[in-house]
């Protein structure tokens, strides 16, 4: 039968959001004590856990060490129970390898690695529940974890996916929208300077639309950054209250 109507004439999406609205973002920092930094982030029904170790000495082969900056090691994985159908996801499948690589590139752009030569920073991200926008949720969670670990960054890295439906960019796609044949784009932004850390799109889109789509993605990322900033401030406040005692 007729496919899903992703955007109604009244401007509402499947789940009742308007085109530029994000899903509800909730996050907590410092969820694990043993790691150097950790964060848990929910963006709608997508839930991710990020853990950071480091900066520490190079583990494994020392030859990978860089003399002028730190190496960032990212590992992305999905929990077997993260999707509707339970699936075994072996480590190192193509999709997660690619995602790990993207995360690595994103954080190399944001973390001030030159402060830690010959060392390594590990970022582990796990998707606990997946409902679209896995990459961006991972980036947002990892940002919080990195901040939690006290590793200096140029700025928050905020990511968001946008899709293009009926000549309108939709921010923060959920799974139903992502799978509805929408050409989507993922963008990671350093919001204060407006620098793009990563831009990824593997669908067909006419050049004319690209600009408006990036524009929408950047606005959405800035929205995310506001939420993250609030979470960080909240966390700091709580932490400082505790330490004062």
């Amino acid at each position: 039968m007729a496919g899903l109507e992703l955007l109604s004439d009244q401007g509402y999406r499947l789940d009742g959001r308007k085109a530029a609205e994000l899903r509800k973002v909730q996050a907590r920092m410092g969820v694990f004590a043993q790691a150097d930094g950790s964060a848990y982030l929910e963006q709608g029904n997508t839930k991710a856990l990020a853990v950071v170790y480091g900066p520490h000495e190079m583990r494994g082969s020392r030859s990978r060490a860089l003399h002028d900056r730190a190496v960032i090691n990212c590992q992305y994985s999905m929990a077997t129970f993260s999707t509707a159908e339970r699936k075994r996801r072996p480590h190192g499948d193509r999709k997660s390898t690619e995602m790990s690589l993207h995360l690595k590139q994103t954080f190399e752009a944001a973390v001030m690695t030159q402060l830690f030569p010959r060392s390594q920073i590990d970022i582990y991200v796990k998707i606990l529940q997946s409902d679209g926008g896995n990459y961006s949720v991972c980036v947002n969670a990892a940002t919080l974890a990195v901040i939690n670990a006290g590793i200096p960054m140029r700025d928050y890295v905020c990511a968001c996916t946008v899709g293009f439906v009926d000549e309108t960019p939709l921010a923060d796609l959920c799974y139903a929208e992502e799978s509805g044949g929408v050409s989507s784009l993922a963008l990671a932004l350093l919001p204060r300077g407006g620098q793009i850390a990563l831009l990824q799109m593997d669908a067909r889109l006419h050049q004319d639309h690209l600009e408006s789509l990036i524009e929408a993605a950047m606005t959405a990322c800035k929205g995310v950054s506001k939420v993250l900033d609030e979470v960080v401030r909240q966390h700091l406040q709580e932490a400082s209250v505790l330490t004062r005692e």
Partner: peptide, 24 residues
């Protein structure tokens, strides 16, 4: 925020649970 849960039959005949957000 409300969550909408329903089950759907897939093309291959399996039954899948779909969870969707539903904003009011």
């Amino acid at each position: 925020l409300k969550s909408k849960t329903f089950v759907k039959k897939t093309r291959s005949g399996g039954v899948m649970k779909v969870v969707r957000e539903h904003y009011l």
